[in-house]
Design a protein around this nucleic acid. Sequence first.
RNA 1: CGGAGUGUAGCGCAGUCUGGUAGCGCACCUGGUUUGGGACCAGGGGGUCGAAGGUUCGAGUCCUUUCACUCCGACCA
Length: 420
Amino acid sequence: MRFSRMLIPTMKEAPSDAVLTSHILLLRAGFIQSSGGSGLYNLLPLGKITLDKVRAVVKDELDKAGCNEVHLPMVTPLSLWEETGRADKFGKELLRFKDRHENSFTLSPTNEEAMVNLVRQTVKSYKQLPLNVYQINWKFRDEVRPRFGLMRGREFLMKDAYSFHSTTQDMQREFALMEETYKKIFTRLGLEFKVVEADSGAIGGAGSKEFMILADSGEDTIMVCDSCDFGANIEVVSEDEKVCPKCGGALSQTKGIEAGHIFQLGTTYSKPMRAEFLNKNQKLEPFVMGTYGIGVSRLLAGIIEQNHDEKGAIWTKESAPFLVDIIVAKAKNAEQMEVAERVYSELQLKGIDVILDDRADKKIGFGVKIKDFELIGIPYAVVIGNDISNGNVELIRRDGLTKEIVSLDSIVELLIERLT
RNA sequence: CGGAGUGUAGCGCAGUCUGGUAGCGCACCUGGUUUGGGACCAGGGGGUCGAAGGUUCGAGUCCUUUCACUCCGACCA
């Protein structure tokens, strides 16, 4: 991709109404913009690419774990919500509207009912179990107070998975598998996180765990054990609790961003919705269920909260919109441009996502390009400048902003080595 | 939903107290000079001052109503 052809409206100043680092940086670096309503954002090209990358990691790990991706409509008949009583329970957060025939619908804030409906129409026998179906789709919640950009938008991208089982034991096996799968996802994304015991809230069910991205700006307070891997949301333990219930170690308090939540549901939804299968003894039984969510768009905010400096974002390898930014110091210099084009196409041939900052406008000098690189947070920049007369280019690593002189002949090879 | 604040050009803001031709910086357009860390000079385009109503010869400014957005709190997979 060429910088000159991409819509990347970077800003020196942040809109005054943004206070959270990730919100400010996503706006300033041109990843998102307000679409005019509270908690609603346009994803600009960089934001869309980044979200797709994060989404791909989530999908890849779920598919490896044997989950089935499907797609449900964002619009769900309200009647499904009435079957479980959640039409009332969810209250005003559930956006409702009517079609031209006066039928009531909702914009889905989550999809337990719709997914149970899908499965009860399809799965009739224990032989078809277990089953894990998921989607990565936009959700809408009419939040009381949307805030902090992608952190708590009204519309947000969520991966929601639902598993169906014939026994509680098998559901618990899947629950453990999902915990491991989530750990792989968060690790691949380069996040420092903690799995904590949590309250099940409006979703209901027996047990649940949250995946917290550790960040001072997190909205959740969690207690973590200094000695073992125990952690709990403050909702489920006393704030005065000083001793780990698991190993007796010392508990300390920290802040986290809830990016994932997994639940052991049991028959909370399958019973009222009469979602049943025939067991070996030819008797009908309700499905035993689990449900597993990841806030995919929130992950973008979380990654920045954890990875940034005073100059801008620092994307991790698996989340970065591009891995390499080729900066042509003087785009009007034919020789520099030629060298840059060559490095650009070689990297592309090797399958590395690269952006070529070929902007030649007289107002866009070297300084602007470097500032944009730092603000956007691409892992590496290759500066093609005067030093090519000596056969050298400069390699800048975004994390730490360390610089090194590299010979033109070896730059592509070096980058491949660093990036794979 | 309670409390606080803000709405003036794409972004950041001044002007409102004390009514009198709509301003500044950045961004944008044209020309020239620059060119390795957000350049300089000259010229230029862009506004129904959130909306409605009122007071007044005259309203961005005063009054009333209303809407939106942000922050704190409560709430929240």
